[in-house]
Computed example of a mutant assay.
Amino acid sequence: MTSSVPWQERLSAGTEAVQDEVIRWYQEMPEGQAYVPTMMWGTLQTEAYATVILGQVVDFLGVPDDVPAGVAKRMQRQQVLYDGEHHYDVVLGEQALYTNIGGPEVMREQMDRILRDIGLPSLTLGIIPATAPVDMLPVHAFNLHGDEVHVELVSSGLNVTEPAELGLYREAFSRLSDAALYGAAAEDLLQKARSFWGGARRG
């Protein structure tokens, strides 16, 4: 089964309520997988990075502006990384390290955050190099928790629960993981991006 709700409907009261839903979702699921090719996984975003992202959501969709409240909830959601009860396998595209969200200062801080947390027991973080061969057609970002996949489209959020479709997402994640670099090799990519943003000029 696949269901979707338009973002403008779901965010009709602002971003905070949806962040509450996501917090419950993460707390109830001890394990999860995420593929995010062009931006930072929400549970690893810094406050500054999340502020820019949610501000863009409010501006694009024309929903009530409660960005500070939404960001506070997103930061609260990140406690699952430190409670010793959860584990997440996350694959980023190298492009996620270079998509300019908020400018060099925000991006440097974001790189520092990931470098700090990459060794957490709750996190297995892989990065697919931009030129890496991948045995998988290019696909959108998705989050897999238990027996449900969540996909964020431009106009709506999509939840997939059909077993056959879930199997495809699991296979896709496996192939994407196989193409990713982990450990010291992933840290090298992060340090390279940190150096890039360290030398970049504001604006």
Rank of each mutant, 00 (worst) to 15 (best):
M136C: 07
V90E: 14
Q56P: 00
K73N: 06
I127N: 05
I128H: 04
A132I: 00
K73W: 07
G167W: 11
H87G: 04
L123V: 01
V151H: 08
P121N: 09
T124I: 08
L166D: 13
P138L: 06
H86W: 12
V160M: 11
V57E: 04
P104S: 06
L123A: 00
L81P: 13
R74N: 15
P133G: 04
S156M: 08
Y88M: 13
P129Q: 02
A164L: 11
T131Y: 07
D112F: 04
F142T: 08
R108D: 01
P133N: 08
V90R: 01
P68Y: 14
P104N: 05
S156Y: 14
L115C: 07
A141E: 03
L120E: 12
V154P: 00
A69E: 11
I114A: 08
L144A: 14
A132Q: 03
Y82M: 08
L61E: 09
A164S: 15
Q110Y: 11
L97H: 10
L54M: 15
L158Q: 13
S156L: 01
Q78M: 01
D89L: 13
F173N: 03
D59P: 00
E109G: 14
A69I: 02
D89A: 12
G55N: 02
H150F: 05
G126H: 01
V139S: 04
N143E: 09
I127T: 03
I101P: 00
H87L: 11
I128Y: 01
L81C: 07
R74T: 07
E109L: 00
D147M: 12
E162W: 06
R108E: 05
K73M: 14
F142H: 11
L120D: 12
Y98S: 07
Q78T: 00
R113D: 10
M111G: 01
S174R: 14
M107P: 01
D66G: 05
A132L: 00
P133Q: 04
N100I: 02
E171K: 14
L137D: 08
V58M: 11
E109H: 07
L125C: 10
I118K: 12
Q79W: 02
R116A: 15
D89S: 14
D117C: 05
D112P: 03
G102A: 09
A132T: 03
V67R: 15
V91C: 05
L92Y: 13
G167C: 09
V149P: 04
G146R: 00
I127M: 06
Y82S: 02
A72E: 15
E162G: 14
D135R: 07
G103V: 01
T99V: 05
G93I: 02
I53G: 02
R108F: 02
V134H: 02
F60W: 01
F60Y: 02
L61V: 08
E94D: 09
